[in-house]
Every structure is written in structure tokens, then in C-alpha cells.
Design a protein around this nucleic acid. Structure first.
Lengths: 152, 152
DNA sequence: TATTGTTATACTCTATAACTATA
DNA sequence: TATAGTTATAGAGTATAACAATA
């Protein structure tokens, strides 16, 4: 009946593409984080948002917009979500009251701490399959690739 | 007035994370493709779909579901879009009429050819900032990282 | 007038659930 | 009953446009 025959799929040149392998690694990373992060109610993007806000007292939304290359409306929505959940505080800055300084609440700091442990655990697992030398190459090469593609 | 002072943003540990750099490279790659691909009316995901269908005569949707780790409904929608545009053909397979074999139309093959040139151009630009040795390390390491994260 | 941010709206991508058809 | 695929629906994530407040 030929029922359990798994078809052999050709990926054509796909697997030889650097862009393809970068994407595969990236989706594997997100899916790996998805489970533990869902319990916390955050996404990888929100983790990085919390990290940057934590490290930059009273950062403005427009600075975050520049960092992420997102539209200001998109960022406003993202900040809303974390703010509604009591993780982020917004305050008008006295120097220029058009700006809103962002900071983490105590609950936000707790959340960040837990999320950071999850991320570090993933990092450890990734580093188990590559050598320290390979790690250096990887970090440098990925940075240069991103930079050159952003140039135009 | 301190108007043109660009604030110095700290990324905390973010830039030392492998997962972060992989994501940065991946979003840079997608954004770089976005412009030329928009003119063709396709996405990077659709490009890879076209490539795999082209290389696998009468492939079934369920095989694609397994490759991509997507839900069958998601894939059905994606195939619909390309089918509505006349790029993909579906035909019931005589061996088992529950299966639909997918193939590219002539227009689909033309589209794939044009998209492939765009992707290859991006690959060339990425390879201009890394050595052949680094390329080897990158491909191998990214493959192993994706594999280990998928294991659980 | 220009800048910072919000809101309404819409589009894409994804999954879940209920369905049809075929086996 | 099980498998392959479709459709309706809903939830993220994103952008555009119109708006409000502040400079």
C-alpha cells in the first residue's frame, strides 16, 4: 500500500542560501522561546523592549522607534500593552513635555529577570553546539551582514 | 538648547546575545528583499514556497506543512494566494484523490526566476563582507543551532 | 509650523475549530 | 474512523493617516 513512505523532498538551492539558514535559525530560536515566554505573557520583541528600557532611564519612545526601525504607532501599541499590564511606566519629561520617559515598574523588573534567565538558558544551549572560535566568527559576521544590508 | 544631541542608548547585554544578532541579520535580510519583492508581489516565504514546489513535482500540501512547521490551514491560505494569481496549479492525484499535487504554471516559473535573481544578488552582497572560511563556519553553525533548538 | 505621541483602521501572518471529500 | 484540504474566525504585528498636545 506504500503508506509509510516518506517522500524525499528536494530543497533545490535553498539550503545553500545564507539568508535561508539565518531565517531557519531565527525561527527555531523564536519557537524555542515561545513556550516559556507564553507562560510569562511576553514575546521576544517585548523582552528586548524591557531590556532596553531597563538600561536607559526615561528613554523616549522616539529613540526606541529609531532603534527598532518600527513606526511610532507600532511602538505606541507595544508600549500600551506592557503599560496596561503594569510593567512599564510613562511620565511626561519636564524638559520637554512632548516626550514621555519610559521606565520599568517593580513588576516589570521581576518579569525582565525571569525572561532573562530563559534567554540565557537558550544561549547556553546554542553555545553547546559551536566552539568559542565559531561563536566569535558568528557574532562578527552576523553584525557585518546586518550592517551592509541596512546600508541600502 | 541641546537640540541635536543624539541620546546614547545602552543595549545592555542584548548585542552580546547570539539570538539577538541572528534576529538582527534576519530582519535586515527581509527588509532588504522587501522592496524588490514588493514589485513582484511576493514575500520571502512565498519565494521559498515557489522554489520547493518547482523542485518537487506534484508535491502535496501536507509535505510542505511538515517542512515549514506551519498549520495546514496556513499553508492552504498561502497556496490560495499564489493559485489565485495564476502562479501555482493544483491537481487531484489519481493514486489518492485526497492529495493535491502542486506545480508551477509558466507564469510561476517566470516569477520564480526573477525572484531568484533578487535573492542571489542579496547573497552576493552578504558574501562581500565575509570570507569564504567565515561562510563555511556560518552555514555549519547556523544549521547546528537550528537543529539543536528544534530537538526541544 | 515641527515634533512627539495616540487612535482608528486595515493588511498580513498565523492558529484553532468546524467543515467537506476521500479513503 | 482517519487523512487531506478548505473556510470562518480570531489574535498578533505591522503601517498609514488623521489627530492632540507641546514646542
Amino acid at each position: 500500500m506504500a503508506k509509510n513512505v516518506l517522500p524525499t523532498i528536494s530543497f533545490a538551492g535553498l539550503t545553500e542560501l545564507l539568508g535561508y539558514q539565518i531565517r531557519q535559525a531565527q525561527t527555531a530560536s523564536f519557537r524555542d522561546l515561545a513556550g516559556p515566554f507564553r507562560k510569562l505573557g511576553i514575546t521576544p520583541g517585548e523582552f528586548s523592549l524591557l531590556t532596553i528600557i531597563d538600561a536607559n532611564m526615561d528613554i523616549r519612545q522616539l529613540d526606541l522607534v529609531r532603534i527598532y526601525g518600527l513606526d511610532k504607532s507600532t511602538l505606541s501599541v507595544a508600549v500600551n500593552r506592557l503599560s496596561d499590564r503594569g510593567m512599564i511606566r510613562r511620565r511626561r519629561l519636564p524638559q520637554d513635555r512632548r516626550n514621555q520617559g519610559l521606565s520599568l515598574t517593580d513588576a516589570g523588573q521581576d518579569l525582565l529577570q525571569t525572561a532573562t534567565r530563559i534567554v540565557n538558558d537558550q544561549e547556553d544551549r546554542m553555545k553547546m553546539v559551536i566552539s568559542p572560535q565559531e561563536l566569535d566568527v558568528l557574532m562578527g559576521a552576523l553584525r557585518r551582514i546586518a550592517a551592509t544590508l541596512r546600508e541600502r
